[in-house]
Design a protein around this nucleic acid. Sequence first.
RNA 1: GCCGAUGUAGCUCAACGGCAGAGCAACGGUUUUGUAAACCGUAGGUUGUGGGUUCGAAUCCCACCAUCGGCUCCA
Length: 663
Amino acid sequence: MLTITLPDGSTRTYEQSTLTGADIAQSIGRRLAADAIGVLIDGQLHDLTYPITHDAKVAIVTAKTDDPNAMYLLRHSTAHVMAEAITDLFPDVKLAYGPPVEGGFYYDMESATPITEADFPRIEKRMAEIAKENRPFTRYELPQNDAMAALERQGNPYKLDNARRAIEQDPHAVISFYATGEPGKNWEDLCRGPHLPSTGRIGAFKVTSVAGAYWHGDASKQQLQRVYGIAFFSQAQLDEYVHQQEEAKKRDHRVLGKQLELFTISPLVGSGLILWMPRGGVIRQELETFMREQLALRGYSAVYTPHIGHIDLYKTSGHYPYYKDSQFPTIKMSQRDPDDQSEYLLKPMNCPHHIQIYAAHPRSYRDLPIRLAEFGTVYRFEQSGELSGMTRVRGFTQDDAHLFCTPEQVEQELVSTLDMVLLVLKTLGFQDYQCRVSLRDPASDKYAGDPQLWDRAENTLRRIVAGSGIKSVEAVGEAAFYGPKLDFLVRDVIGRQWQLGTVQLDYVLPERFGLEYIGSDNQPHRPVMIHRAPFGSMERFTGILIEHFAGAFPAWLAPVQASVLTISEKFLDYGREVLSALQAAGIRADMDTASDKIGAKIRRSRELKTPYMLIVGGKEQENRAVSVRTRKDRDLGSVPLDEFIRRLREEITSRSVQSLMID
RNA sequence: GCCGAUGUAGCUCAACGGCAGAGCAACGGUUUUGUAAACCGUAGGUUGUGGGUUCGAAUCCCACCAUCGGCUCCA
């Protein structure tokens, strides 16, 4: 007899000694039995037919899009169906690994003939046939020896390796296979499961893309083909997904950057090198002004350093050996003078330069903390395949600063620095970000410095984050080589995660450069460094910001804050008067002087996402007013010109994310 | 860097071995307009670059450059 506890806390007893999720669903109701696709047994996801042999907490999983377990079953099962379809069409493929992932699933495989997008329709057609056949996913298990022997016979090195790794990890691992239909008769695959009851439960799917991927993510290993797909329980959900993807594409900063004339990239200048156009320049300048205000309020000193540095500087800092391959090649002075063996590097970071400013003369404990800030432009030779719009580039400007302080001051400086990062995110209305506490990987030897200092630094960061109350995740192996850090991550419109602001704690570089200050005991001491950049890179931050606002920037950032649209050329004189008044008040304004009708002017202004359209005609001229329309199509009616200017100025100076004029 | 795809007018796209086109933008003219595209016209191109195949190449092949989707990397 078995006692089963259901999610609502109720219990049911069953006479059988073994039981399945399907039995339980059936006993609860016919409807649930029909909807059931899997089962959680004591929190573990299993097939509906998995035998339950002891008392357990059981939850029936049904085909719901918002249930991650349901989506796991669906996508994992669809990956199998896709793999079967591909093996039918490309008999030479050797399957490797096919998991569900966030936003879909993929299957890695080795294939002599490349699979391309042109093959997707017939793959999908074959998948549809398999789904229509409604074959059950049938699990069977083999003793390890038999399983390995079976895999040997199949001659697939990847599957063999998968099984071997599973056994290595857990000597008692159960080796299971899933047949899509009947074992021995239909297609089958080494697989841990679980799966949907049958292929007919797959509602709608799409093969989305194909790409190269390394076996076990190791670039030195064989490259496989990775075919990506997506699946939903219904066609309507798939249609919705496709629609969302299309909408997301319109928000892509590369699309909007072109459309709104914010930035451009010229192959003649070079890949990954951003040219800020006037409209984008406004945004950057406003962000920098905002930051400079904060620096002044928080006791920072502005410094300026050159774009190149002697290579020995980076050998001393330790950057050079670590990042040799991702730097622009060195400038060899021997090309000019054979006797001069020195080399210069386009600077990949600002800290060594700032360190030299600190080291320029002796420091007293009374001088600390010293906070050196610079919008410093750095150059890194990113791999060609990695470049992406403004978010991954080869030249970018960090809103960088380095804080030199006593060990006692570290905590206070970190708190204040973290506050600054959070202020930036708050001011720009970012809510959907992640704070990652990036720690060292104790198993790796890439980290410099004393492990005790590392422990201390990591614990300090943990304490600061805990004290701030922000949500965070720890990530082992994500630290810089010189210290642990707090990274603030956001996603772009196509789901890629990017690091924006960062706060890094560093005991290593002061050591390497032999930095000192004289303490109250009249003895030399070693300062501690904090590296911090609330925006991170101006390029990346702006790119993400474009997507965050979908190009509709708040007034304080908008390239043009208000556009004067005249009803006809008869009102050009009044339009010019309005324009001058706006400009005299420090508002970025322009005027559409075309002979088009007002509808066309509104349309153009909307496309540029200008916050306010000021429509002026006879009525407005008479009352020295403007008719205000927002880019969101709110008609605020006629507003006296002076009042509009006053209200817009308030919106701008308060750096409001929202329009203050929508009542 | 690796795998795959894609490069045609400022932008979005068509032509897919046989005369390189459209819409928008630009420019000129007409219109003088009241809240998401007035009308007519003009101009705009060595089809990313360089080779090759062919009577003939935007179209087929090769190399390079760039972009896109992934992988790897990311101080």
